[in-house]
Design a binder for these strands. Structure first.
Length: 492
RNA sequence: CGGGGUGUAGCGUAGCCCGGUUAUCGCGCCACGUUUGGGACGUGGAGGCCGCAGGUUCGAAUCCUGCCACCCCGACCA
């Protein structure tokens, strides 16, 4: 295995692929397009899950679980949704294998075991869920229903990349039912705000909250809200979406309720999700040419202690000290571990922990024992300093917050530097080619113009920012009047 | 799904055009010893159905066909 990671400048996409594998986050599997998430990668995902789950519950949601399979007849009920996902559905047609009479030792699909009705492997769960909600909802008293599920979904992608686009991925999908349009819209916005706050405060990833244009909207939604993040290579990445589904699914699945006045009305719906794609966003926001950089909130180990020793006696002495440090840190809510593997030398450990993004590293050697100090190294800045033992744990506690904030600030600065306002199509192309990032420009509001710009530049409208200010201008392509700027970018 | 490329030990590779000893080298791995403040060194050792399946041939890593996987570029996409 080569020791050095390909640099970002050399080949960003290669850098990403190597990093995911070398940092032991995930690898490709024997199944086309499907990844194996390795323990270290999964530990980071679990941190995300835990925080999101907490936030969902805090906003009144409960977890439940719905089936992996969707009977085709249910799947096709909401036409737009079905049509949108049709091209990428895996379908179960049989329920049994048998020994192949022609090839001893081999199995074949039993031709007798064809399913009456094919089962679609869920690309998303609206269909099963709304079919279920139909049985749960009669009256306004049954509303709202605020449910989330943690699940895997399958979308048969042509080109896959670890975390960013895989045929199977893990996510959460919230599905809520409401009595009024206003309440459902509020829920949609609330959850988009939850995502934004999670991304910014927990993952240290600045995001732009916005609304999707019609062509980028979720199939079956009335409105799709999103959070858009900017990666280091200047490409945008949709990090989360929240959909106002109107009454589309209620109508498709005939879900009506009696309101307070005794009139029947269709239920209003939302759905919202974030996926393991966030791992990709995390990597491409903070990491550097030395490897992964983790914000303390997401680091499986926030601090690692590397002992430097010649004799076993020294190791014992260092280990004893390390245990004291570890338990003091634990009291302060900081997770730390001692890397006492005797199979690697210190330098190799430094390199590995750097590659894996551990926020803070402590090295303790004979000199430190003598001086009552340690060497403290920050992953985000790659700086080192000698710290006296008696101020160590307090300093680290503060560092956790400092690193978290500084990563966010660094990413925010980069992001803000890469939002460029342009007022001509020439400038649009110029900025896109030379600088990348988001381009803030006027758009005449038509799908035709959007498509034309995509065809000419490969950039799409990432969103209409929710805080976009009213400003009269002219469409960057057609010159037609426009009332606000939208954000364009090349996207993942 | 279209175009291009690549599959040889855990990883990276030589050999392939032009078929012919025991398949090359480096890293990693194992044992022992010396080491340990930024990816250690020595000695010894293990590890290969040459991507898979057919075919051509006295003989296939090498030639032919099919399949599979991965990478790059397009279309699609969270």
């Amino acid at each position: 295995m080569s020791k050095k990671l390909t640099s970002r400048a050399e080949d960003y996409s290669k850098w990403y692929n190597e990093l995911v594998v070398k940092a032991d986050l995930a690898e490709n599997s024997a199944v086309r397009g499907c990844m194996v998430i390795k323990p270290y990668g999964y530990a980071i995902w679990e941190k995300m899950q835990a925080e999101l789950d907490r936030m969902f519950k805090e906003t009144g949601h409960k977890n439940a679980y719905f089936p992996l399979f969707v009977p085709k007849s249910l799947f096709e009920a909401e036409e737009k949704n079905a049509e949108g996902f049709a091209k990428e559905c895996a379908v179960v047609t049989h329920y049994r294998l048998q020994n192949d009479p022609d090839k001893p030792g081999k199995l074949r699909v039993d031709p007798e075991a064809k399913l009456e009705e094919e089962l679609v492997v869920r690309p998303t769960s609206e269909a099963v869920i709304w079919n279920t909600y139909k049985g749960w909802i009669q009256s306004y008293r049954d509303l709202p229903i605020l449910i989330n599920q943690w699940a895997n979904v399958v979308r048969w992608e042509m080109r896959t990349r670890l975390f960013l686009r895989t045929a199977e991925f893990l996510w959460q999908e919230g599905h809520t039912a409401h009595a009024t349009r206003e309440e459902a819209v509020r829920e949609t916005e609330l959850m988009n705000n939850v995502y934004a706050s999670f991304a910014e405060n927990f993952m240290a990833i600045p995001v732009i909250k916005g609304v999707k244009t019609e062509s980028e909207r979720f199939a079956g939604a009335v409105d799709t809200y999103c959070i858009e993040a900017l990666m280091q290579d200047g490409k945008a990445l949709q990090a989360g979406t929240s959909h106002f589904l109107g009454q589309n699914f209620a109508k498709a699945f005939d879900v009506k309720f009696a309101n307070k006045e005794g009139n029947l009305d269709y239920v209003w719906a939302t759905s919202w999700g974030v996926s393991t794609r966030l791992m990709g966003a995390l990597i491409m926001t903070h990491s550097d040419d030395n490897g992964l950089v983790l914000p303390p909130n997401l680091a499986p180990d926030q601090v690692v202690i590397v002992p430097i020793y010649k004799s076993m006696e020294q190791l014992d002495e260092i280990s004893e000290l390390a245990q004291v440090i570890i338990s003091e840190l634990k009291e302060k809510g900081v997770s730390a571990k001692l890397d006492d593997r005797d199979t690697l030398r210190p330098g190799a450990k430094f390199a590995q922990h750097e590659l894996q993004g551990v926020p803070v590293r402590i090295a303790i050697g004979p000199k430190d024992l003598e001086n009552r100090t340690v060497e403290l190294a920050r992953r985000d800045t790659l700086t080192k300093e000698i710290v006296p033992l008696d101020t160590l744990t307090g300093k680290i506690e503060g560092l956790m917050e400092e690193i978290q904030v500084s990563l966010y600030k660094r990413a925010l600065e980069f992001r803000d530097d890469h939002i460029t306002e342009v007022d001509s199509f020439e400038a649009f192309k110029e900025v896109l080619e030379t600088k990348g990032g988001f381009i803030s420009a006027h758009w005449d509001g038509t799908a035709e113009t959007e498509a034309k710009i995509k065809e000419l530049t490969k950039a799409t409208i990432r969103c209409i920012p929710v805080d976009a200010k009213e400003e009269s201008g002219n469409c960057v392509l057609t010159g037609n009047p426009s009332s606000k700027r939208v954000l364009f970018a090349k996207a993942y």
